[in-house]
Design a protein around this nucleic acid. Sequence first.
DNA 1: AGACGTTGATAACGGAGATTTATGATTTCA
DNA 2: TGAAATCATAAATCTCCGTTATCAACGTCT
Lengths: 300, 300
Amino acid sequence: MISLKQLHYALAVEKTLHFKKAADACHVSQSALSTAIIELEKQLGSTIFERNNKQVLITSNGQLILNKAKIVKRELDELVQLSQSNKQAFINPMTIGVIPTIGPYLLPKVLPEVRQQHPNFKLKIIEEQSHVLVDMVRTGDIDAAILALPFPIDGLMSFDFWQEDFYWVSHKDECPSQLKEITSEELEIDKLMLLKDGHCLKDHALAACSMRNDKQDTDFDSASLHTLIQMVAGKLGTTLVPQMALDQLIYDESEIRAIHLNEPGPHRTIALIIRPNYVRTNELTQLRDIFNQQLTKKCC
Amino acid sequence: MISLKQLHYALAVEKTLHFKKAADACHVSQSALSTAIIELEKQLGSTIFERNNKQVLITSNGQLILNKAKIVKRELDELVQLSQSNKQAFINPMTIGVIPTIGPYLLPKVLPEVRQQHPNFKLKIIEEQSHVLVDMVRTGDIDAAILALPFPIDGLMSFDFWQEDFYWVSHKDECPSQLKEITSEELEIDKLMLLKDGHCLKDHALAACSMRNDKQDTDFDSASLHTLIQMVAGKLGTTLVPQMALDQLIYDESEIRAIHLNEPGPHRTIALIIRPNYVRTNELTQLRDIFNQQLTKKCC
DNA sequence: AGACGTTGATAACGGAGATTTATGATTTCA
DNA sequence: TGAAATCATAAATCTCCGTTATCAACGTCT
């Protein structure tokens, strides 16, 4: 029977590519580790490491085995977490990834409430683009990610908690004062400025207007919504922003106006993304409820 | 350190709800199993089983732990498979699920070639509806499933290998003889007969026609395409069938005709569904290639 | 009620397997 | 050529897991 110890040792060797160092890392003798690896390879019927006195290499097959071993280890870690986490929720720290077009607008609305309800809960936030976060969720680097859907999340699960539309943002001088709604047909495409490629917000905005992302509107691709708004204020063009960002980007006294984009919606769905089999769903659904509650309170 | 043995024992207790029987099933003494369980619970810091001399109950928390233990066990099983499977593909048996509206049409086209290329490969096929197969893939009961997409497969992965359109099938007496294409607008909805609810083919057919599945077209809901075709032959109405079924359902000399449904497509995508982390992807992609090859050869 | 069988827990003992220390075979490098 | 470093191997040791035997608590049957 293959043991976890063997897998543990093998993973240490993968890291160090060195039996002695791996043995030290595992706090056992080089001999013990060596025999354990040999026994593992014997039980599996295939070599994981090609080794001589000079260097240690990983077999292609061995790499697959090691990858799987990581998964086994991660699942077992989660099993241990499970017993603690379910007895005492919001004790263990948690890391959640969030994309740049959600983080700055969602977190100020919801984190105070999270902090109030769970004062000792250590919630770490990282900000990356969607595809990076999806990878990190897959590998277990982070517990969950907050993304805007639709986005390809093959093999992952989503908890939706918010849906919203886009608003067309323009300088008041360039906007008919009585206008309450606008359709994509009425948009002047030439003046529309969006985030640079890689930000899913751009794709969702274009999708809401039933447009493709094939034309190269290079000149004004920006890296943040704040910058875009500044450019609108400078009469350089117009843009589309999601509902949750409105209150931070646009003040009553400002020169710019936001008009609801009247296209079939919702234009984007905000969701928590997790691996299937992830264990701290109890805490995550509670977080989702807080998020939804606060958004409903502050966005509408 | 938690050991696999402990998890194995715990799962045996879950099955039998009886320490002695579980011990027998594991081929160890009741004592050994008992101490192992006690030690496991101690290491986890929470009880899995509430037990007295009369009965054994599973804690709610314990159930979560046991579910996770099953996952750990499955992943480890796959790790073992990995080393064999990659050295010698198509040696270990494999079970694939397929839905009723694909199996009878796809398998005759592809299985002979699979058999020819891999004479000793034991491929077991089961036939169920999509949602059943999705569950079985999730739990690891089957290696993979062949479904028609779109279908909700949260947390699973898909390998597409075929896309096809629907054809409108009618009795030649009820079909203009020169008609080469037909749109959903031109279909006489009243005469259209589809499979009964639960078959995804019905949903895909309706989606291809941009129709909802809310009306109760009860009278003629059938359980198989063959039956539907028989009903068309009896002039009871018309139906929609996917491309891959045409050659089996319709003969040159028959009284019925098939006309391509001219709506934006593809109308359904055939894909292999697996769990993320599933290990025999090498063999599956080879199978997919065979499927695609044979379909291209025989469907076009 | 009392004998008996059943339940899971516990104690003492024994052995298989893992670990350690010591050593070997081979290569690298000075 | 010799010292240092590599992973493998051998023998001694020890830890841990299994067994048997027993216990306490509960049910059942006469």
